[in-house]
Amino acid sequence: MAFTHTVLCQVGLPRSKVEGREFLRQSGATWINIQAGVLDEGHGPVLQPIPYGVMPRLALAWVSTFAMRNDTPVIPLGDSAAEFLRLMGMDDQGARYTTLRRQMHALAACRLQMGYKGRNVPNMSPIRQFDAWVSNKDEHQRALWPGTMTLSTEYFSELKDSAVPLDNRALLALKGSALALDIYCWLAHRLHRIQGRGVTLYWTNLREQFAQEYRGKDPDKDFKKEFLPALKKVMAVYPQAKVKPVTGGVLLLGSPPPIPYKGGPGV
């Protein structure tokens, strides 16, 4: 069993690099706003990008899962970057270190705001403390790895109240696609709440939720080409999900969650 925050199941982080210093995404009454921050990497302040892609999604799911299982905001990251990569189910190829370092710094430095159903959480950056992974010619050097991360009080409290249970095996199987991870988390949160004849969502609605960055001549068609293959991957790891492509969009039908709810907050 793994966990992630309910808002991140509805509106995810950017999937590709954001050129600006701010990112806003909204779906219905739920939204997130991310502002890039600054982190001291050992030689003074360094502007960080907005976190994006697979790595921060898996990292947040992993630390959120540890926090929920152990009821603690202090997260051990292993003795090295290689060990943390393995904990997240990723190989420790050289390129992974650069991506991990960049995205963990971006995640630690960013300011994250969330809102849902009229409730505003003005500054709920997930990470309160993360010692920078200092640049060095030998990035595998053990002494440079921070070792622990501390979640912010606000994020930890919100997580305990509204975490969504996920199947960790599904996350590992989908680790090659940020869009597939987003779709899986969304369906895990949404499907078991649906009753009756289901809900039809059209491509415009789905694009507004998942891919507002599509701005071409036919953005809905372009998004559909990306969404359907990703959905197929999700259905392979979440076979209980009842999702049917229909004319103009997809039909969502009530389905069991990937992890049965047993009562209590978030579980």
Rank of each mutant, 00 (worst) to 15 (best):
156 F>Y: 13
146 P>H: 00
129 Q>V: 05
128 R>V: 03
161 D>R: 15
121 V>I: 12
161 D>Y: 14
158 E>P: 08
158 E>L: 15
139 E>S: 07
135 S>M: 10
118 G>R: 00
158 E>A: 15
161 D>Q: 15
163 A>H: 10
138 D>F: 13
139 E>I: 12
169 R>Q: 14
146 P>R: 00
140 H>Q: 09
157 S>H: 12
120 N>Y: 06
153 T>Q: 12
165 P>K: 00
138 D>Q: 12
147 G>M: 03
127 I>Q: 03
125 S>E: 13
139 E>M: 10
140 H>K: 09
122 P>I: 12
138 D>P: 07
149 M>G: 02
114 M>P: 03
124 M>C: 15
142 R>F: 03
131 D>F: 02
121 V>E: 04
170 A>G: 08
136 N>L: 08
122 P>Y: 05
154 E>L: 07
125 S>Y: 09
170 A>T: 04
163 A>F: 09
156 F>M: 05
121 V>S: 07
151 L>E: 05
124 M>A: 15
134 V>S: 07
146 P>A: 02
115 G>E: 08
139 E>V: 13
128 R>A: 13
150 T>A: 11
127 I>L: 10
154 E>R: 06
170 A>L: 13
124 M>G: 15
166 L>W: 01
156 F>S: 01
121 V>C: 08
167 D>H: 03
148 T>R: 01
149 M>Q: 00
121 V>T: 05
144 L>V: 07
118 G>H: 01
156 F>D: 01
155 Y>C: 11
158 E>W: 13
136 N>E: 09
159 L>N: 06
133 W>C: 02
132 A>H: 00
153 T>E: 14
129 Q>S: 10
153 T>V: 08
166 L>V: 04
137 K>C: 06
129 Q>K: 02
162 S>Y: 13
150 T>W: 06
156 F>R: 03
150 T>I: 07
122 P>M: 11
168 N>H: 07
165 P>A: 09
135 S>T: 10
169 R>W: 04
152 S>E: 06
166 L>F: 02
140 H>Y: 09
131 D>E: 00
148 T>G: 03
131 D>Q: 05
162 S>A: 15
168 N>M: 12
137 K>D: 14
